[in-house]
């Protein structure tokens, strides 16, 4: 497959803003649900779960960017990676805030006890904690300051967050584990593509390191 050539204007002024707005759609849906009483009998639980679902989905989408590039050489996809990763972070933080503020109503003692006591919440917290340094170092300036190699090493935490997110979801499900297993399978596939690509082809490694040097 050959690399797609999309004019810079389209990428910067049309496609990227569209992806940005599309990424806000789950939030718009949620706001619509609250304003129309459309979130069912237990809107607080629905909100927390919905935000958690989208945190995990955006994380997987962001993690898919590089493997898809490896498979297709659509290098322009790299332009969306940071934004998608930041959306994953934003939804994860909102998910956590929903748990703290709506579900537990800021009962800090209980929240702390739950984080320590319930393994699935501990693991969920770990996922959010992993994403914090990634969000903080997502700017071009931080890439430069850290140096490409170190930046890349740090950003492997995204996979730790992904694994933790899937386990967190798997553990909280009562009986129907199909959805978390699907996410787990996607994550495994993405990771396999990276490994396989790294071993056999050595093609098109993410260009952050080189870009950082040039900058």
């Amino acid at each position: 497959m050959s690399s797609m050539r999309i004019p810079e204007f389209w990428l910067a002024c049309v496609i990227k803003p569209s992806v940005f707005l599309a990424s806000l759609l789950p939030l718009a849906w949620l706001a619509w649900g609250w304003s129309t009483d459309g979130l069912g009998a237990n809107p607080i639980e629905a909100t927390t779960r919905f935000l958690g679902d989208w945190a995990l989905r955006f994380l997987l989408i962001a993690l898919a960017v590089t493997p898809v590039r490896m498979l297709t050489a659509w290098n322009c996809l790299a332009r969306f990676r940071r934004m998608l990763g930041l959306f994953a972070f934003a939804y994860a933080v909102l998910h956590l805030l929903s748990y703290i503020g709506l579900d537990q109503f800021f009962a800090w003692a209980t929240i702390w006890a739950e984080i320590v006591k319930r393994t699935y919440i501990t693991i969920g917290m770990l996922a959010v904690l992993c994403l914090i340094p990634l969000a903080l170092t997502s700017t071009k300036g931080m890439v430069r300051r850290l140096g490409g190699k170190r930046w890349q090493k740090l950003h492997r935490l995204a996979y730790v967050a992904g694994v933790a997110g899937v386990i967190h979801f798997y553990m909280m499900v009562k009986a129907d584990v199909r959805e978390p297993l699907i996410y787990g399978a996607i994550l495994t596939a993405l990771f396999s593509i990276r490994l396989w690509n790294g071993r056999t082809r050595q093609v098109a490694r993410p260009s952050v390191a080189r870009k950082a040097k040039r900058a």
Binding site: A41, N42, D103, Q104, F105, A107, T110, E114, M172
Partner: peptide
């Protein structure tokens, strides 16, 4: 084992 049973959400109410 995975959650506390000390409080509950009454459907239709905001606070536990």
């Amino acid at each position: 084992p995975r959650w506390s049973q000390a409080t509950e959400r009454r459907i239709g109410e905001f606070r536990r």
